[in-house]
C-alpha cells in the first residue's frame, strides 16, 4: 500500500509525555485527534446517536430535503440520511481498523522473520514484498473481488493483502538496523536466545514506527472501502457505508444533490482527521519517517 519509507536506528521514537505534549502543541495534530476521537465515539455510540433505524424503508418520505425531522434529508427509499451516515462511521472504522490491525500483525511477523531469519528466507520475503508492491492496488483489489465476490470479508482480505508488504518492509528494515546494534550483540554474547532478543528488544522498538504507519494508512483504507462500496464492489446494500450512500446520491444528483453533499462530508472529515493525526504523531514520535505515497 505504501512505499519509500526511510527509517534508521538512530531515530528511535521518544516515548511518553514528551511526545503527547508535542502532539497537543501541534494545531494540525490536535485537530486530527479531536476528529478521530469524535468519529470513534460516533461509531461506538451509533445505536444511541442515530435518530432513526438506518435501514428502515419509508417510501412515503423519500427524497425529503434536510429538515428538522431529518437533518440530512432522506434517500430514495425514505431512509434517514443522518442515521445512515452515523452507522456508516461504524462500518468505515470497523473495516479499516480490523483490516489494518490484521495487516499490521502479519507485517510484523513477516518483517521480523525476514530481518532475523536466514538470508534465503529474507530474499524470498523481499521478493514477495516487492512483487505485491508492484501491483497497482486497485487493480489487484478488483482481481481478488472478481474471484471471491464482493463483500465485507473480501474487502478485509484485499486490504490485508495490499497492506502487508509495506508493513513487512518497515519492520524488516528496523530489525536489520537493530540486529547489528551493540546492545543486541552484547545480549548474544551472554547467551540470550533469539526468542528473548525478539520479544524483549526488537519488538518494543519496532512497534512504535509500525503504529505511526498504521495510523497513516487508516485514511487510505477508509478511502478504498468507500471507493469500492461506491462501485458496488464493497459493502453492499442495505448496510450503510459512506461509499454506497455516495453512490445513491450520485444516481439522484440532479433531483437530490443534498445526498452527495451530506454523504461526502463525514468521509472528508474522517480521512482529514486520521491524516492530520498521523502527521502529528509522526512529527511527535518520529520526525524522520518520511512521506509515503499510496499506490
Amino acid at each position: 500500500m505504501s512505499c519509500a519509507v526511510e527509517q534508521t536506528v538512530e531515530n528511535l521514537p521518544p516515548r511518553g509525555r514528551g511526545a503527547l505534549a508535542q502532539l497537543m502543541r501541534d494545531p494540525m495534530g490536535m485537530t486530527g485527534a479531536v476528529l478521530v476521537v469524535g468519529f470513534i465515539l460516533l461509531a461506538i455510540f451509533a445505536p444511541l446517536l442515530a435518530p432513526y433505524d438506518p435501514i428502515q424503508i419509508d417510501v412515503r418520505h423519500k427524497f425529503q430535503p434536510p429538515s428538522l425531522a431529518h437533518w440530512a434529508g432522506t434517500d430514495q427509499l425514505g431512509r434517514d440520511m443522518l442515521s445512515r451516515l452515523i452507522w456508516g462511521a461504524r462500518v468505515a472504522l470497523g473495516i479499516s481498523m480490523t483490516a489494518t490491525g490484521i495487516a499490521g500483525a502479519l507485517g510484523l511477523l513477516l518483517g521480523l522473520v525476514a530481518g532475523f531469519g536466514p538470508r534465503w528466507l529474507d530474499a524470498v520475503l523481499v521478493l514477495f514484498f516487492d512483487s505485491f508492491s508492484s501491483l497497482p492496488m486497485i487493480m489487484f483489489a478488483l482481481a481478488v473481488i472478481t474471484v471471491l465476490g464482493p463483500g465485507i470479508t473480501t474487502l478485509i482480505i484485499v486490504i490485508v493483502l495490499v497492506s502487508v508488504p509495506g508493513y513487512g518492509r518497515l519492520i524488516r528494515a528496523q530489525t536489520l538496523a537493530l540486529k547489528g546494534a551493540d546492545y543486541i550483540q552484547a545480549e548474544r554474547t551472554i547467551g540470550a536466545s533469539s526468542a528473548r532478543i525478539i520479544l524483549y528488544h526488537l519488538l518494543p522498538n519496532v512497534v512504535g514506527p509500525l503504529v505511526i504507519l498504521l495510523s497513516m494508512d487508516i485514511p487510505v483504507v477508509i478511502m478504498l472501502e468507500a471507493g469500492l462500496s461506491y462501485l458496488n464492489l464493497g459493502v453492499g446494500p442495505p448496510t450503510p457505508s459512506w461509499g454506497n450512500i455516495l453512490y445513491d446520491g450520485y444516481t439522484s444528483l440532479r433531483s437530490a444533490p443534498y445526498m452527495v453533499i451530506a454523504g461526502g462530508i463525514p468521509l472528508i472529515l474522517c480521512t482529514l482527521g486520521f491524516t492530520f493525526l498521523g502527521e502529528g504523531l509522526r512529527d511527535a514520535l518520529d520526525p524522520k519517517l518520511k512521506l509515503r505515497v499510496a499506490r
Partner: peptide, 8 residues
C-alpha cells in the same frame, strides 16, 4: 511510484 495511485 504514484503511477499506481493515479490509476486507482
Amino acid at each position: 511510484i504514484g503511477a499506481g495511485s493515479i490509476l486507482s
